[in-house]
């Protein structure tokens, strides 16, 4: 078999444009997913059922279904059922951000629960209100503890972005798979695609590991 690696060089600008879309999409999804996660977490922990119920529906609904389905649902069902037509890019961003929010919400919840009761008791004993305790004592510690888990979410989010290629958003996966159909250079393109994802993903995974060590909690 002859492999034609030179063709890759010609495709490089296209691939790099795809890389850019992948990175921006993942970044924006996480940027929305952190406040989104905090909101869902606050909703779930709320005393009021009007807030708990929708938060729980969103969290339990999205945690238990494939991201691919969520993406398709927003892309195909939303316009038909609710007459809402979003661009593929907006749909992709919304789906990823929602999905990541749900997982972030659970991470924040675990973080908050991991702060021992003694800490909030000490703060309450000083005369603080519940909101003050949460804002100045519990959340700062909980968020810090959430960092390693958030990093892991980021790593999987980054790879999950490849799913958006299914609704024609021109991310790295999409442009690479397009190139493959156009050029029939399956081995070269898929190998290059693997290498590029790995080169981006590996440092992130390592960074997540080091954050894990750095923010490890010893009690």
């Amino acid at each position: 078999m002859n492999f034609d690696w030179s063709a890759l060089w010609e495709s490089l600008p296209v691939l790099l444009a795809g890389v850019q879309t992948t990175i921006v999409l993942a970044f924006l999804a996480m940027l929305l997913g952190i406040p989104g996660g905090l909101l869902l977490c606050a909703g779930r922990r709320s005393r009021f059922r009007v807030l708990t119920l929708p938060a729980c529906i969103v969290i339990d609904g999205l945690r238990a279904t494939p991201v691919l389905l969520q993406l398709f649902w927003l892309f195909y069902v939303l316009p038909l059922a609710f007459d809402v037509q979003l661009s593929p890019y907006a749909t992709a961003l919304l789906a990823l951000a929602l999905n990541v929010s749900v997982f972030n919400a659970e991470i924040f919840r675990a973080g908050i629960n991991s702060i021992q009761r003694g800490q909030s008791n000490a703060a309450l004993a000083l005369g603080m209100s519940g909101t003050q305790v949460m804002r100045t004592v519990v959340l700062p510690q909980a968020l810090r503890r959430s960092i390693p888990a958030l990093a892991n979410i980021w790593v999987s989010l980054f790879k999950n972005t490849a799913l958006v290629s299914t609704i024609a958003v021109a991310d790295l996966a999409y442009v690479a798979l397009q190139l493959r159909t156009e050029t029939y250079k399956t081995v070269e393109i898929l190998t290059a695609m693997a290498l590029i994802y790995w080169l981006m993903g590996y440092p992130q995974a390592k960074l997540a590991d080091s954050l894990q060590n750095r923010y490890q909690v010893n009690e």
């Binding site: 003694g118 800490q119 008791n121 000490a122 703060a123 004993a125 004592v137 700062p140 510690q141 810090r144």
Partner: peptide, 9 residues
Amino acid sequence: FQNFELFPH
């Protein structure tokens, strides 16, 4: 408190 409960952050 018995366990001090200083705010570690």
